[in-house]
Nucleic acid binder design. Structure first.
Length: 515
DNA sequence: TTAGGGTTAG
């Protein structure tokens, strides 16, 4: 072009961004500045979008400064693009600060911050913000698509149903993204049947619709249903992508379907020419490890064409725990500690492996190592929704108004378990070394998931299922506890941990040992 | 007069 206007530059920056060449998009902005082209708000938002997609706020901060200096920040679109950039880079503090200093907030401003909170692990803030949208600003379908993942991550079914009702009243039901987000919300709130009803009613199912449902079956341990749906999807001519393959591989590993897992892994590569990414590899390692084929899993990792990360090695470490392979666990853990020296979860996992093997010296050394890095264990936390209110329990928490009642319930159950099932308190799950068994048992009684289950039984009508959510994986002792409680109270207990759903019914768990 | 922008589901 002989003459390039600011519009030509903007179009080019957008094109580079769409093609995922973020650095080139940003370079183009620098070039145009150098050439003395007059910069306007449109270019700023475009280049901010490139920074957002790139995911590092360093470039974005420079643009932020530029916008401030040139008085562009009062433009709502520029402010929105800034918020989105910070949110996508995981910097919610900056996003919030921009939001609060924006005078003319429109619905996009609210959506951007709500979505940012949802995606960055602040679901309560997302819900709170939604409640504060002023009357004159009308939420739209996108608002719901931003908000529903927050409900899903909290696993608050009542709240989710309220929002579903709102979606119906406001007339957003025919929106694809909203429909899919609703199905996903029901799946993650443990209401698999409701999710399926909604799924069946969706007239035009797209790839995301199918993937949500397949992942849902996987999470709940229905591997065969996940496979049936995957096949049905292919018959309808919908081409699976890398995310749907993660869903199906995940479903196979959580149901112990080894052969099927390999079948889909090969299908992905041969039939669809999709190169496996870290998530796919982690699923395969998980599949092998759960089946006890630890050596094969180790070899598999070493043969990967891409560098394995901590999640891949972590899947093997979990397997080492199940099959009590201390030697391999040590080797694997060292690799993980190099990759992620500050993630306490893996130290705890290795400590548990040592404890279960009664290697007390090693436990002590590991504790010292954790201490010297000034790392703190991420506290276990469970929550339960009753009558629309969420009750949160933190491990060992003693502040609950019903604490005596809850404590008595847990102790009574443990006592009955000892008498009726020859249950031995799994003191190995209480991560303390210089304590006697009594103290350990007491610590076990205080686990957050036991408290939440007890609270649920005590505060809901007979026959009602109990839904509990936990931030970490459920502990083995609590798993036994939940089975027993489901038997003696005749209640169904649905527990979502950080990994999957466990449905306890009449003394059995739906996971059948596949955690 | 027209061209270029910011929010959305797995």
């Amino acid at each position: 072009m002989k003459q390039r206007s600011v519009v030509s530059w903007t179009a080019m920056i957008m094109a580079y961004t769409r093609a995922e060449h973020y650095d080139q998009a940003i370079d183009l902005f620098l070039d145009m500045e150098e050439e003395g082209v007059k910069i306007d708000e449109f270019v700023i938002t475009s280049v901010l979008h490139a920074c957002a997609c790139k995911g590092s706020s360093k470039d974005g901060q420079c643009i932020h400064e530029y916008a401030l200096k040139n008085g562009m920040i009062s433009n709502t679109s520029v402010a929105n693009a800034l918020m989105d950039m910070y949110a996508k880079c995981g910097n919610m503090e900056e996003a919030r600060s921009v939001f609060h200093s924006t005078l003319n907030k429109n619905i996009i401003s609210w959506n951007t911050l709500i979505g940012g909170y949802s995606k960055n692990g602040f679901p309560n803030d997302a819900l709170h913000l939604f409640g504060n949208i002023p009357q004159r600003i009308r939420p739209n379908a996108i608002t719901m698509a931003c908000l529903l993942p927050a409900v899903a991550s909290l696993s608050c079914l009542e709240r989710g149903r309220e929002i579903h009702a709102y979606v119906i009243r406001a007339g957003f039901v025919r929106n694809h993204q909203v429909e899919n987000a609703l199905v996903d919300m029901y799946v993650k709130c443990g209401a698999l049947i409701l999710a399926r009803v909604l799924f069946d009613r969706i007239y035009e199912k797209n790839l995301v619709t199918w993937t949500v449902m397949i992942a849902g079956y996987g999470m709940h341990g229905y591997g065969a249903d996940a496979i049936a749906l995957f096949k049905q999807m292919r018959r309808k001519g919908i081409k699976p992508d890398k995310v749907s393959f993660v869903a199906i591989l995940y479903a196979c590993s959580h149901s112990g379907l080894i052969h099927e897992g390999w079948y889909f892994f090969n299908m992905m590569r041969n039939e669809y020419q999709i190169e496996p990414n870290l998530e796919h590899y982690a699923c395969m390692v998980d599949l092998l490890s759960r089946a006890g084929r630890l050596k094969k899993a180790y070899e598999f990792i070493n043969s990967m064409p891409i560098e394995p990360d901590s999640t891949v090695w972590g899947a093997l470490l979990c397997g080492c725990r199940v099959y009590r392979d201390v030697n391999l666990a040590e080797k694997v853990a060292e690799k993980i500690f190099k990759l992620e020296p500050d993630n306490t979860g893996y130290y705890v996992l290795l400590a548990n492996i040592y404890t279960e093997a009664e290697k007390w010296e090693e436990v002590k050394r590991l504790r010292e190592r954790i201490g010297s890095r000034r790392l703190k264990k991420n506290p276990g936390c469970s929550w339960i929704e009753t009558r629309g209110k969420v009750q949160v329990f933190v491990s060992g928490d003693n502040s609950h108004p019903q604490k005596e009642e809850i404590k008595k319930f847990v102790e009574d159950v443990m006592k009955r378990m000892k008498e009726e099932e020859q249950y031995v308190p799994n003191a190995r799950y209480a991560l303390m070394i210089n304590a006697d068994d009594r103290v350990k048992e007491e610590a076990l009684c205080g686990h957050s998931e036991k408290l939440a289950i007890a609270f649920g039984i005590l505060n809901s009508a007979y026959g009602r299922p109990i839904h509990v959510t936990k931030n970490l994986r459920i502990c083995g002792d609590c798993h036994e506890f939940a089975k027993f409680v489901s038997k003696v109270t005749g209640r169904e207990i649905v527990l979502r941990d950080s990994n999957r759903f466990h449905k306890f019914e009449e003394g059995r768990c739906s996971c059948r040992g596949y955690w």
